[in-house]
Design a protein around this nucleic acid. Structure first.
Lengths: 191, 191
DNA sequence: GTCTATAGTAAGATAGAC
DNA sequence: GTCTATCTTACTATAGAC
């Protein structure tokens, strides 16, 4: 057999992430994780001594980092509100593969993590996302209550369109959602 | 030990449904189903000879029946559009326990059922729901494209608000969604 | 119709060779 | 760093008593 080469951390994390996003925490068996990464069980334990829980934790960490870099930071930039929102939309389109991949925040919201470490992190991620979006809408002229309401509605709409896309085996709901998101967040002023 | 009494089918199905909605298909172990229903494993197999798959199938059947009775039928009534939508909203509030319970269509959309029996049924349920809602909006004066767009958006919004409510451990997103749903589906006419 | 007991399989996790 | 081999536990499912 050829000498095994160490798989890169980045590629490994991506493969693990794909599995958890696809089947959730409970559904992500070591067998699936092993097959997806090309590493045998024991090799996964070498990288992640605490096993599946650690893998899920690091997948969550990557999701948090991605959210910060590609969503929160652009939303907090000094660009015009329209530009900030468009930057977020472009990032989301890539992250969810146009609707083909589910959101880790939905798929990992398992009761397995009830009172566990992931529950609080998922809640914080949703909160930070909604709050950053609300600030943009405030900057665009919305009052505080309206801004928060529309921000939360937009995140719900995104999550729901991903649920529909998965349930209906069609990327159309998600693509439709993205296409109309800017217009819903920043409605034209009515004189 | 006292003589065991047969548990009613309706109550049994409700308990099973609660588990599947809570933890999804993969997470619903026989141990959890047994504990929730109060029936031992072997007793569950007496009622459901094909095991977990059959239980999930019957839970899905009950969800379909519920959707037909409490959502599709009211939406297809001869009442005014506002009344039909309000009837749906009342039913959803009860079915999802004000946001405390997840949607079986989301939680059972497992890749375990990819190309399996549930995938097609989930897709059909979403389609029927959206289509029935679109007809109401058409009756309220919306053109066909707008009606379908708003209907799909509303179902996505509902699903997403349930995702947010679960992820944030708060019923507020769902309650908020329901409170504003009628206004979003039937926006006031602008002269 | 429900139970105890158990079979058989797949799960998560570890030990030690290379 | 990856592997094969193995352990223990939990899982789905079945057999048979009451």
């Amino acid at each position: 057999m050829a000498r095994p080469v160490k798989i890169e951390d980045s590629a490994l994390h991506t493969k693990l992430s794909d599995v958890f996003r696809d089947v959730g925490y409970e559904g992500a068996s070591l067998a699936k994780l092993s097959e997806a990464t090309g590493l045998k069980r024991a090799s996964l334990y070498h990288r992640f001594p605490d096993g599946k829980e650690q893998m899920a934790g690091e997948v969550m960490s990557r999701a948090e980092a991605w959210l910060t870099e590609h969503v929160l930071t652009p939303l907090k930039s000094k660009d015009a509100p329209e530009a900030r929102i468009r930057a977020m939309i472009r990032a989301l389109d890539g992250f969810y593969s146009g609707g083909r991949q589910a959101c880790v925040l939905n798929m990992m919201s398992s009761p397995r993590e009830d009172r566990g470490p992931l529950a609080g992190r998922i809640r914080n991620a949703f909160r930070a996302w909604i709050e950053a979006l609300a600030v943009v809408l405030s900057d665009a002229g919305a009052d505080e209550h309206t801004a928060h309401f529309r921000a939360e509605r937009a995140v719900a709409l995104l999550q729901g369109s991903l649920v529909l896309s998965r349930g209906m085996s069609s990327t159309r709901p998600f693509r439709n959602c993205l296409a109309h998101l800017e217009g819903e967040l920043l409605p034209p002023l009515r004189p």
